[in-house]
Write a protein that binds this DNA or RNA. Structure first.
Lengths: 202, 202
DNA sequence: CCTACCGATCGGTAGG
DNA sequence: CCTACCGATCGGTAGG
């Protein structure tokens, strides 16, 4: 019981400096863009000078990559949970769409930056993120193809439907705000209804 | 018949230098982003050195603004033409959606840059573009509200439907390519069908 | 339309 | 964790 984790100060910085820095970077990237954000900006946001950040992160580029990698990975998990929650294809689709919408509303900054700053990634990082995004896209598309195969949907192209659905979710991150006239739940349900109609279900 | 327009060389540069420069800038902005594109890059693309561009354009920022202003203005005109083409509200909506889709497919670079680089605009320019975009949004929303008032649609929120529809169109600019497996017409018709179902028409 | 160049910015390192 | 600073980049101007 004698002094475990001696460096942990109370109050400020709940988790660790790295997370604080990534969080501050995210807010700035979302607001001003990756290129227009300087390491000094990020430092200021966490009460440090720019160069001091390099004790906690390896580079500005790595900061962007870490943010995006966690973001795609998390939304993929949400989708997997939605699919695993039932055997009914139509319900799987509805829940996958709701998860997609919830993610883009609740974590709008990550989703927004993850989309807008794709081309700010270095080649290798870009390819890794794109591959994960494609896997995510394939997850929804597979469900739609299954629904089509079972004769439960009336849309003409699984590919176009998938892209349309993902894009309308991605768009949410660009205009949604907490304290909006819609709650995240209302958004998820309404988009769920719209999508099921769009697919010609029911 | 003696030498009219003596400066006009044959071949290269069909219209005028300004248009060539804006076109080259657009391609580079779409590909590398506004910030990562240098005046020297743009110059090279039109066989000039960077500083020489300033004889034809006033600044890099102005290049971006000019591209965006023309883009929103044109898509607004397309929408107006769609609305003017018939008195049937449902058909007005379908045609407005088709116009929206066609624009984002055919002029994908402008649409893409116009969306992704919004925050690269200076304050005054930003506000002017945003105002035009809002007017465009209102155009579609008004149609949907009318359809709702006439009992022809079953969607719950004109606002959410409008945003969802616009966002799925905007997304097209991010993945569509000529020589794609879908033609622009097929895209417009399929999205038209999807949207009308989504709105609960018919 | 070009070369030369200014002034400012910025990511990252050195060295404590 | 900071100050000092390097090296590179870039928009725009001067002056022909």
């Amino acid at each position: 019981m004698d002094a475990p984790r001696p460096r942990q100060r109370a109050g400020r910085s709940r988790v660790n400096r790295g997370d604080d820095i990534r969080e501050a970077a995210l807010v700035l990237f979302a607001d001003k863009g990756y290129n227009a954000t300087t390491m000094e900006d990020i430092g200021t946001a966490v009460n440090l000078r720019g160069p001091s950040l390099y004790k906690h992160v390896s580079s500005k580029q790595d900061l962007l990559f870490a943010i995006m990698a966690k973001s795609v990975s998390d939304v993929q998990q949400d989708q997997a949970a939605a699919v695993a929650s039932t055997d009914d294809v139509l319900l799987q689709i509805r829940r996958a769409v709701e998860a997609h919408v919830r993610f883009h509303a609740r974590r709008r900054r990550e989703a927004f930056v993850g989309h807008r700053e794709l081309r700010s990634l270095d080649k290798g990082n870009y390819e890794r993120i794109i591959a994960q995004r494609r896997a995510y896209e394939l997850g929804l598309r597979t469900l739609i193809e299954r629904g089509l195969a079972e004769g439960l949907l009336r849309t003409r192209s699984a590919k176009l439907s998938t892209l349309a659905i993902l894009d309308m979710g991605i768009g949410i991150a660009g205009w949604f705000h907490e304290r909006h006239e819609f709650s995240v739940d209302e958004l998820a349900w309404e988009y769920g209804d719209m999508v099921m109609r769009q697919l010609g279900a029911g």
